[in-house]
């Protein structure tokens, strides 16, 4: 009970004092998460929509199970893969991205991408199949049909965004491997939590966890307001 109680007061104290190291960690967490999320969405939503909208997609029997498997990718495996690719001996070692935020963004994007594609695909498939026909009959182009269908599936697509965001911001294995948890450079909230736990600073670790949860909550709250604002009921 002592540790739990202290964690809450510590969390408030850390926030109140605007602890410089903490602010840095929070900002990096948000930066890595949001950049990876935006890339995953920009690429994943069109692909997910295309798969969902294409009735007779060649290779669907293989593509869809692959996507579903990707949705459950163990982040550590993604981290390991990214590590090896970005390592000096790896094919992309020349980029010098290992142990940098860029490398972390690569890993996080890979983790988020199948989630975005899979959930967007499912959301689009959940739209009444007669809708595209109706839109075509109203003189829509293929692109307009896709846009209207995506907007119609916006609840599901928002769920894809939320799921991807949650997966990335709470992920620890891949960013630990690829980023290296370097203080002031690649340390994010999750890796800081692991570190403080290992140091035995349970109260600090827990207070970092509370801050992480608060960040996730605030963002999801914003997403939800957006959903309500869209007139979804």
């Amino acid at each position: 009970m002592g540790t739990l109680g202290r964690a809450f007061t510590d969390a408030l104290g850390l926030l109140w004092n605007m602890d410089a190291a903490l602010i840095e960690t929070v900002l990096l967490t948000l930066q890595v998460t949001l950049v990876a999320l935006v890339i995953a969405l920009a690429v994943g939503i069109p692909i997910g929509a295309a798969i969902g909208l294409t009735r007779h997609l060649p290779g669907r029997w293989l593509i869809v199970p692959l996507i579903y498997t990707g949705m459950g990718l163990p982040p550590v495996t993604v981290g390991l893969f990214t590590y090896l690719v970005l390592s000096n001996q790896g094919p992309l070692g020349g980029l010098g991205w290992l142990f940098t935020p860029s490398g972390m963004i690569v890993a996080q994007t890979i983790i988020a991408f199948p989630l975005v594609v899979g959930l967007t695909m499912a959301a689009v498939q959940g739209v009444d199949p007669n809708l595209p026909v109706q839109m075509l009959s109203l003189g829509a182009t293929r692109r307009q049909v896709a846009t209207v269908t995506l907007l119609e599936a916006r609840v599901g697509v928002t769920a894809a965004v939320v799921a991807a965001y949650g997966a990335i911001i709470s992920e620890v294995g891949a960013v630990m491997l690829v980023g290296g948890n370097i203080e002031g450079e690649t340390r994010v909230l999750t890796t800081a939590i692991v570190l403080e736990t290992r140091k035995g600073n349970f109260a600090l670790a827990l207070s970092l966890g509370i801050i992480l949860l608060s960040l996730a909550f605030l963002t999801n709250f914003a997403f939800h307001r957006l959903q309500v604002h869209q007139g979804v009921r």
């Binding site: 290992l98 142990f99 948890n181 370097i182 203080e183 450079e185 570190l195």
Partner: peptide, 18 residues
């Protein structure tokens, strides 16, 4: 000075890489 906050194995891998 890079403070990794990681175990020995990871720290050695890091040192080897960079």
């Amino acid at each position: 000075y890079k403070s990794l906050g990681q175990g020995m194995g990871s720290t050695l891998n890091y040192a080897n890489e960079v």
